[in-house]
Simulated assay, not measured.
Amino acid sequence: MIRTLLALDGALIRGALALVLAAEHDIRVVAEVDRGDDLDRALWTRLPDVAVVDADLIAGDTVAGAGPCPLLVLADPRRPRGLYDLLCARRAVGVLGNDVPPQRVVDGVRRLAKGEPLVDADLVVAALGSTGPLTGRETDVLDLAATGSPVNEIARRLSLSPGTVRNHLGRIKRKTGARTRIEAVRVAQNAGWI
């Protein structure tokens, strides 16, 4: 039995994938989380054989380099940033687009449980070509700013001080040539950096 943890944002998608995996005779979902800060604790308390993780939940997080099991990372093919660092940081990682058919995820869980590699070649090519002027932390800050999160919320979610977030936003605006946070988000999205 392959003990599987699901760490996906969005109850509908997470629930649907849990049903698909539970229908398999050799896979059991042992935990579900929807926040990155719950992921590390769940990995160490539930001790799954494989974790299926939304790339956005681990961006800039310490779980990218740690954890007791292989990660099957589901990433947006249009936003491959951070995948290169993730692939370099972990030996036990598989990467698929978040738009793949459910059966590919099922097969991916089985392959990672056996210790076999699993990488979507198109995502790797996109990740290698997604370099930009922003650091990983600046990208994390801008990702949250793009959702409309205020400085204090960004600081809380990234475990930073509000002053540090404001400093990051200032550097981001300079690097993107933007006058406002909204303009910086638009520039970074058009360039594929976030």
Rank of each mutant, 00 (worst) to 15 (best):
A64K: 07
T139C: 12
R171P: 03
G170V: 08
C88A: 15
G148C: 12
T4G: 06
I194P: 03
V20P: 05
N167L: 14
V151F: 13
G177K: 07
A184H: 01
V105D: 00
A188E: 08
K175F: 10
I154N: 04
P133N: 02
C69G: 12
E116I: 04
L158T: 01
R181F: 07
T45D: 15
D99Q: 01
R181I: 12
V29R: 02
S159H: 13
L134S: 03
H25R: 12
A11S: 13
V93N: 10
L71G: 00
R157M: 12
V165R: 09
V95M: 04
T135M: 12
A51I: 04
L43S: 04
A22D: 15
A31N: 03
G129C: 08
L71C: 05
E32V: 08
E183N: 07
I194L: 15
A191K: 08
D26P: 10
E32S: 10
Q189F: 05
I13C: 05
V33E: 08
R79N: 05
G148F: 01
L87W: 10
G136Y: 02
W44M: 08
T45W: 04
D34H: 14
R186F: 05
G82K: 01
G94K: 00
V29G: 02
T45P: 04
W44A: 05
L6H: 00
E116V: 03
V119Q: 01
R81E: 13
L123E: 00
T4M: 05
R41I: 05
L21D: 00
A188I: 05
V93I: 11
L71N: 07
T62G: 14
D76P: 09
V20S: 11
P162H: 06
L169R: 07
G148Q: 07
D61F: 01
V124T: 04
G36V: 09
I172V: 15
A89W: 05
A146H: 10
R46T: 09
L160D: 04
